Amino acid sequence: MPDSNPAVLDFLLTRRSRPARTLRPPVPSREELRTLLTAAARVPDHGKLEPWRFLVLTRPATRRLAALVEARGAALGLEAEKIAKAAAQYADADLAVAVVQVPRPTDRIPLVEQTYSAGAACLSLLNAALAAGWGANWLTGWPCYDPVFRREGLGLAEGESVAGLVHIGTPTAPVPDRPRPDLDRIVEWVEA
């Protein structure tokens, strides 16, 4: 039997994201966040391309981004409710990490695998934050897909995209578990 780590398995079987709107200070210090980012950077990365990078968004940055979301939403003619919801994601955040997908040109590793690696970095950061006792949530939203917001708000280069925004803070409300997938419905055993 292989060596096991029951504590990690138990964590993975019981982990639960916390709604971003319920996260408040304190947030991880720079050193604490560096540990979480180190864990996030240990994801599967075919070809050692590092097709992602991290933007740490502190309170002044999230306030600035909230204002940009409002301006972009109005310029795009979006509904007021949709704009307000997206702006609140930034206005209410004391700390978020944007995981940026950085496609690397190569004939060996398809772009889709680089995308999966960036998504894995989001999940690893989320799980590292939860394992460290913080509340965390992985979100995106329409601003992440708006090229002007990405360029002007986040400083992303052409071809870069947001794989996710991982909000991290202190949870202020208990969250009940939600229904989980029925494995009998989604698992198929292929034996021949």
Rank of each mutant, 00 (worst) to 15 (best):
L13A: 11
R34I: 00
R42Q: 12
T22M: 14
T22E: 15
R30G: 15
L23H: 11
L33M: 06
R24I: 09
R53D: 01
T38E: 15
R15P: 04
F11N: 01
L9I: 05
P44S: 11
R34N: 14
R34T: 15
T35K: 13
L37P: 02
G47E: 00
L37Y: 07
L55N: 10
P44V: 11
G47K: 00
L23K: 11
P44M: 12
R53S: 13
P25D: 09
L33G: 01
E32K: 08
R42A: 13
R53K: 13
T38V: 09
L36V: 13
A41H: 06
L9Q: 01
P51F: 05
L33D: 06
H46Y: 06
L23R: 10
R34C: 10
W52I: 06
L13C: 09
S17E: 14
L49H: 06
L9A: 07
R42E: 02
R24F: 04
A40R: 03
R18P: 02
T38M: 12
A39C: 07
L12H: 03
R34D: 14
A20C: 07
G47S: 05
E50G: 03
T14Y: 01
R16Y: 02
R21S: 08
T62C: 03
K48Y: 00
R59P: 04
A39Q: 07
S17A: 15
L23D: 10
L57K: 03
R18H: 12
R34A: 15
L23W: 11
P25K: 10
A39E: 00
P44D: 08
P19Q: 11
R15N: 02
L12W: 01
R16M: 12
P60H: 08
R59C: 02
F11K: 05
A61S: 12
T38F: 11
T35A: 15
S29Q: 07
P19V: 12
V43R: 15
E32R: 10
A39Y: 02
P51G: 04
P26R: 04
R21K: 11
K48P: 00
T35I: 14
P26I: 04
P25N: 06
R59D: 01
L55A: 06
P28S: 09
A20P: 06
P51H: 08
D10N: 14
R16H: 15
T22P: 11
P26A: 00
T35V: 15
R21Q: 08
K48I: 00
R16W: 02
L23Q: 12
A61M: 08
H46D: 04
E31V: 04
P44E: 08
R30T: 15
L49I: 03
R18M: 13
D10C: 09
A39M: 00
R53A: 09
P28E: 03
T22Q: 14
R42I: 05
R21D: 07
L55V: 14
R30K: 14
P60F: 01
R53Q: 10
F11I: 02
R24M: 07
R16V: 05
P44A: 12
E50N: 12
A61T: 11
F54S: 08
R53V: 04
L9S: 01
R24Y: 07
R34F: 13
H46F: 01
P26C: 07
T22S: 14
E32L: 01
P60W: 02
E50L: 10
K48N: 13
A61P: 00
P60K: 00
E50W: 04
R34V: 11
L37V: 09
R18Q: 14
L12I: 05
K48G: 14
T58G: 02
E32T: 09
